[in-house]
């Protein structure tokens, strides 16, 4: 049972949160993307075994979406922040 530090509420059980995946950046002009480029955004994933920057919603708390840097092997939570505000690796 992971403990995630919500930047707004503090440390909470993972069961208060809903996972949102890696949250890839959306192409600025979707119409300009070809099918494979668009599919890359919608479907393809890095899926690292190690550090993973991902999004969670504190759905049973403040309802805020937050960015979480987490190790997918050890489940260590390295950092949490507002979306887009994780420190550089």
């Amino acid at each position: 049972m992971m403990l995630i530090h919500c930047p707004h509420c503090g440390a909470r059980d993972v069961t208060e949160f809903t996972y949102g995946g890696a949250g890839a950046a959306r192409p600025a002009d979707p119409a300009a993307a070809d099918d494979p480029q668009w599919a890359d955004y919608v479907y393809m994933r890095d899926n690292p075994r190690g550090l993973h920057d991902e999004l969670w919603q504190h759905s049973a708390g403040c309802r805020r979406w937050i960015a979480v840097r987490r190790n997918t092997l050890t489940h260590d939570v390295i950092a949490t922040a507002r979306p887009g505000e994780l420190p550089p690796r």
Partner: peptide
Amino acid sequence: MSTLEYWLQVH
């Protein structure tokens, strides 16, 4: 609800 919050807060 959650999806709308996602788009607003993330993108």
